[in-house]
Design a protein around this nucleic acid. Structure first.
Lengths: 163, 163
DNA sequence: AGGATATAGTTTGACGACAAACTAACTTGC
DNA sequence: GCAAGTTAGTTTGTCGTCAAACTATATCCT
């Protein structure tokens, strides 16, 4: 090994290594930063998990919302999912191409699509859901049963009320 | 207006519109999904805010960590910041180009850079910090003083313990 | 009826993220 | 002292995201 590896290191007078840890300053106790860190770590974990069954993690919420709201349009879906409608185009295209989702033009308004999950899509969704449940159990264990409900409420509140 | 706008809509027998709301199924009470939603909304809000002073939101954490840890290397910084070292290359390049950060090769190990914030960088950081504090106050108001500490602890716990 | 306006979805361009492959510098072990 | 392995940082390729411009439909108002 070239150096002692992870962690900050400083050299003393005689060349000995002195471990130093990172100072985060105000980031330490700011919600924004810690929210980002928590989300990204959790997302990475779920990402690895869903790769095991050969699916991209983002597909899960999309597929669930379509399944629970048959005939939903892409714009409604993008709002529900909290992303821009333009982000959805390639995702839906992929799901349709792989036969998991079916899309039909509406009769009354031919600009709009209706999205539905196919039988194959339901099968995939079942697997993804099992995968997500395992992920949730891990998160639950970290959060603890006592605080879970309140924690969830706060997350919802942030998403709903900010700006 | 072409239709009634946002919200789900279904047509009745006589063509009248019937509002329907989105069903989220299990997403409703899953931490992963709500964590993502909260983080993305909060990030968007901070993004708008930092655009007002002409900075990208990602620069803030980076600049703070460099300022608090003078001489830090890029790899240490990427760990502290929770991102891949390769993501950091263009960010540091940009900060150096704009004269906010200075980087020097280490004598003892010429692979490594030492990063430091310049005087101009400190000025920018001061503005960014003010901006972040306003953002934090909004978040604090949403979370509530009573739950804030516990909420933060849980976020840290998730980032630290998952996987 | 038809022009102004609004909406659904796509395209394009910029960015930030990761992972894997790469270069250059360092260390280890023989 | 040198080959083999390791580490710091960059490059490249892919992906997901947003925002703005675009198309095609649909509606509203006169």
């Amino acid at each position: 090994m070239a150096t002692s590896g992870s962690g900050r290191v400083r050299r003393g007078k005689k060349g000995e290594t002195i471990a130093e840890s990172i100072r985060f300053g105000p980031l330490e106790y700011w919600v924004g930063f810690n929210l980002r860190m928590a989300q990204e770590h959790a997302f990475q974990a779920f990402s690895r998990r869903s790769q095991e069954i050969g699916e991209s993690p983002g597909r899960f919420a999309t597929l669930t919302i379509i399944a629970r709201n048959p005939g939903i349009s892409q714009t409604e879906l993008s709002h529900a999912n909290g992303r821009d409608k333009s982000s959805l185009t390639p995702v839906v295209e992929d799901l349709v191409r792989r036969g998991l989702v079916e899309r039909k033009r509406m009769r009354e308004d031919r600009r709009t699509y209706r999205l539905n999950v196919t039988a194959a899509g339901k099968k995939t969704l079942t697997m993804l859901t099992r995968c997500a449940r395992r992920h949730e159990r891990v998160l639950d264990a970290i959060i603890g049963a006592r605080d879970r409900k309140r924690f969830l409420q706060i997350l919802k509140k942030i998403a709903a009320e900010i700006e």
